[in-house]
Write a protein that binds this DNA or RNA. Structure first.
Lengths: 261, 261
DNA sequence: CAGTGGTCTAGACCACGTA
DNA sequence: ACGTGGTCTAGACCACTGT
């Protein structure tokens, strides 16, 4: 009267016949989707393991494994007694670890300041379609800014914001908070793609950065999606001599602790 | 007579009093260390789960969790019935996904070719110490190469190889296989750090790439360690108009399958 | 102190690939 | 056909932490 567990009969029932997906996966993607769509915003408390057990009719081990994986991916944070919470996206991309520009400048010990140079609403043109990964014509907010480290121009920013995804942006003047940081606090969780190039600086950027045209610059283009919807495209142009990207690569999670500092 | 498992008495025994590390972690780092040190080279079959169970005196779930994590990090590959095997490091860095240059050029549909421009042995100078992360003076092999896509120079390579870590390199002429690919096949598993910058191309690189000095170039510097020992430093210089780095960032493992193509 | 996550067990059934 | 990994269970004890 102890063994003979009926087991996964629920999953193997005729109705689910073609899913053929592990229970893991289903729970994982369920939670991920809710986080990525913004339904569970950063800070939101995820159901306790016991609740998820009941919801999915499975053992604690199963949900625990999923939550452990999500915690490993930094999508949630777990605190004993308190529960598990959706974490804030660690500014921009955990992969390239590009902090937001204010942090970046602060790390240099210099006072930070930014200026909005241009700001206007318009519809997307065909040339934008590729940048924002959209087919239809959509309302956009186009922004250009310059970020300063001390008195020196540090970074030139050209940005498109999809007003369908972030309608509040239309009212925002970005007087206090730079567009990047503003979006970070507003869009729940994102998927990003980066392109990095060396370019010769051109007119608008050259003027803002006070460089002679043709000087080498590091250009980072980032496209961002949330809930499968394009959110923003941004091109950051850094004077070549001022900026450096660092990316470390170590094997998996806790790689012998302090192998590389 | 069924429950009352003595359980982790082994771990809690007085001798292990201060380790306070989970069994997971111990198994994980044990295996990682063997892979990173080269003791288990790519292709090596890792002990079966049953063997590891006996070795560590634990349940299969525990070792399975570890192997699953290692597989998720692409450090091993698991095949039913066959076992789990150490995987080859996916060329360079899984993070930035920089393929080796030959692959990169092949992807453009152009014939690939490289030339060794300079090659000589010498001892490390103080200026090298930082690049190779070493304190003592060590024997080095210094290489400069140029990689071509079709008839056009594609990438200029400056490399230092630590001959203590890879003594065979001293005899290698790199006539057939480029240094990067040669090291990839020889050094078991690596930890790498990248720095990416936009620079104005200078003398040696400018000549090799047939560019006028001052033209913008993308510079990638990579430092590589294996078994906690510096292996190689390489600086790759790409003409700015020819090259683009792409890095995608999606949440954890299977992010809703086909979210982003 | 009560409840949460952290870890582990000793089984079990299944799918699949290799032989 | 057999043995491996893939997945899951129904417990258990512990450590930590917030109230």
């Amino acid at each position: 009267m102890k063994s003979k567990t009926p087991r996964r009969t629920a999953r193997k029932s005729p109705e689910d016949s073609k899913v053929a997906i592990s229970l893991h996966q289903r729970i994982l993607t369920d939670i991920q989707d809710r986080i990525l769509s913004g339904e569970w915003a950063p800070g939101h408390r995820i159901p306790f393991e016991h609740e998820l057990m009941r919801q999915y009719g499975c053992s604690r081990m199963t949900v625990s494994k999923v939550l452990t994986q999500l915690a490993g991916a930094k999508m949630i944070e777990r605190r004993r007694k308190a529960g598990s919470f959706v974490s804030r996206p660690h500014s921009q991309s955990a992969v390239l670890e590009i902090p937001d520009i204010k942090t970046e400048v602060a790390a240099l010990g210099l006072p930070y300041r930014f200026e909005v140079i241009g700001r206007h609403k318009r519809s997307s043109r065909t040339s934008d379609r590729e940048l924002l990964d959209t087919r239809a014509s959509i309302p956009l907010l186009e922004l250009t800014c310059c970020h300063f480290a001390g008195r020196q121009p540090f970074c030139f920013e050209e940005r498109l914001i999809n007003l369908l995804a972030v309608p509040e942006a239309a009212q925002e003047t970005f007087g206090e908070v730079a567009p990047g940081a503003w979006l970070l606090g507003r869009v729940p969780w994102t998927i990003a793609e980066h392109k990095i190039r060396a370019t010769a600086v051109e007119t608008a950027a050259a003027e803002a950065l006070q460089l002679r045209a043709g000087k080498p610059c590091l250009t980072i283009e980032r496209r961002t999606w949330s809930a499968d919807q394009p959110v923003t495209f941004v091109r950051l142009t850094y004077p070549g001599n001022l900026h450096e990207l660092v990316a470390s690569f170590a094997p998996p999670e806790p790689p012998s602790a302090k192998r590389r500092r």
